[in-house]
Design a protein around this nucleic acid. Structure first.
Lengths: 195, 195
DNA sequence: GCGCTGACAGATATTGAAATCTGTCAGCGC
DNA sequence: GCGCTGACAGATTTCAATATCTGTCAGCGC
């Protein structure tokens, strides 16, 4: 069935995600992945030096799928406050959609992310840099008044953790959550715009 | 050794904390607590209906030790912005001190708190009510401009989670943490004071 | 009477032997 | 030559027997 298809890292990653979804994080083994690919498990080790690096690559893929649409928003023209708000709401929405649609897979990715903390750190830095860009734009446009866009970006990220950090995912389904997002965003945007 | 001392709930709680500190959460049993008290474990069940309720009582005690000094600050007179900032810094400081001085015991309390989530919920409500009071004072004093102090208080609590929620405790030791606290507090206080 | 004890049943945790998995590599076949 | 296989050693996980713990309660002793 797979005879005509060459074994690429990309294909291994796709199948690994399938296997993780099917067997769960605890039960999924490299042997399972190899079996699903119809190769020996030695072949998988030809593309990834260890099980940990395979898991890390899966985590990286997942985080990239989160950050791609955000980069697009950050790159758009327009007034900074509205753009920043849209960017943040897109971030919260992306996370909340994932946990809502497939909580088990979300838990799996969360554990993968915990293991691959350097990948997560880079992802966070990447996101904060995007926020910094939008804040700097706002300062240039005269709508934001902050001394240091880098510090302010980190503060925005810290102050919105309740809505994007997976440790708080169990609250995202509550009916009060939307109102809480609104309240925090109002406060933060007022803080950025205040002279 | 304990012959002259009557067996009270309070004494059981004290000894339970000792046992938790000595044996760790996973290994501490009701039998261990009874042994440390020099009574049979049946006597412990005379004061607490179950092991879970004993653990819950320990968690409650711990949370009360956190909130007591905060209530004092909230009750003091003075301008609202400075008081709110002091209150928040005291909250962060209390948590950070605990995790720094005895990380193992902090982990123990964290797990106890996870188990006794209704106790934690009440604690949170209690703290948010104090913030609400300070914000309402600020509005009365003409320094804060918010439509609903209750909503704003919840927002302040959400926006500062990075610094008081135990899920983020591993970052509290970082040298950048103080600067991050300053940045978030600046932003939030500006947001509350902005017209 | 009242509070404590200690034996008990059922639930939970521990342990060590057996099974499975990870990571390596010599050698096969295209 | 190059990529894959499959057997292997050591690490990890599973499973079932065993031990310990939780929660109850009849009865003892003050």
């Amino acid at each position: 069935m797979n005879e005509a298809v060459v074994l690429t890292s990309e294909r291994i990653l796709e199948v690994t995600e399938d296997v993780l979804r099917r067997y769960g994080l605890a039960k999924a083994t490299v042997v399972d992945v190899a079996r699903a690919l119809d190769v020996s498990h030695g072949s998988v080790y030809r593309h990834f030096p260890s099980k940990a690096s395979l898991r890390e690559a899966v985590a990286r893929r997942w985080l990239e799928r989160v950050s791609a649409p955000l980069a697009q928003i950050a790159a758009e023209p327009g007034p900074a406050p509205a753009k920043l708000e849209r960017w943040l709401r897109e971030l919260f929405g992306a996370k909340q959609k994932r946990v809502c649609e497939d909580p088990e897979m979300f838990a799996t990715y969360l554990t993968l992310a915990r293991e691959a903390c350097s990948v997560v750190k880079a992802h966070k830095q990447h996101l904060i840099a995007q926020v910094e860009g939008m804040i700097a734009e706002g300062v240039a446009q005269g709508t934001f008044h902050v001394t240091d866009p880098k510090t302010a970006a980190a503060a925005i990220f810290d102050a919105t953790r309740s809505f994007h950090h997976p440790a708080h995912a169990d609250e995202w389904g509550e009916c009060t959550c939307q109102a809480r997002v609104d309240a925090v965003l109002t406060l933060l945007l007022r803080g950025l715009q205040a002279r």
